[in-house]
């Protein structure tokens, strides 16, 4: 599939994950989020930006368990827990937030 943004077509796989992470920008993130039924709030952006920083440092999309722990470490336990993250991303922070962040599907996620 592909996303159409600013008159440009951006290639994605059949599940909507970007083929090339360098195609990502904030407008595109908003578009992907809309496809996922998510209206991006500052809280959503916080997680998406965290994921992009994690990817820049480690070159992988973290497993949900690892993401939750890393968020707890950086932003505190009130955000680093499943309930908070699933409320933001009902179909799974791993899958949905990674997709919006332009990252590949987390390793080990089926």
């Amino acid at each position: 599939m592909a996303y159409e943004t600013n008159g440009k077509s951006v290639e994605a796989d059949e599940e909507g994950f970007l083929v090339n992470i360098n195609d990502w920008n904030e407008d595109l993130a908003g578009l992907i989020a809309k496809d996922e039924g998510i209206d991006m709030s500052p809280e959503h952006w916080e997680v998406v930006n965290f994921l992009r920083e994690y990817y820049a440092e480690y070159q992988i999309a973290p497993a949900v368990r690892v993401l939750t722990k890393a968020i707890a470490k950086k932003m505190g336990p009130e955000k680093g827990n499943n309930k908070y993250l699933y409320e933001l991303f009902p179909y799974g922070p791993g899958k949905q937030a990674c997709k919006i962040a332009g990252l590949p599907k987390p390793t080990g996620c089926v």
Binding site: E57, Y58, V66
Partner: peptide, 8 residues
């Protein structure tokens, strides 16, 4: 860099 993620 991913080897450094193993700790997490």
């Amino acid at each position: 860099p991913t080897y450094r993620a193993l700790e997490g």
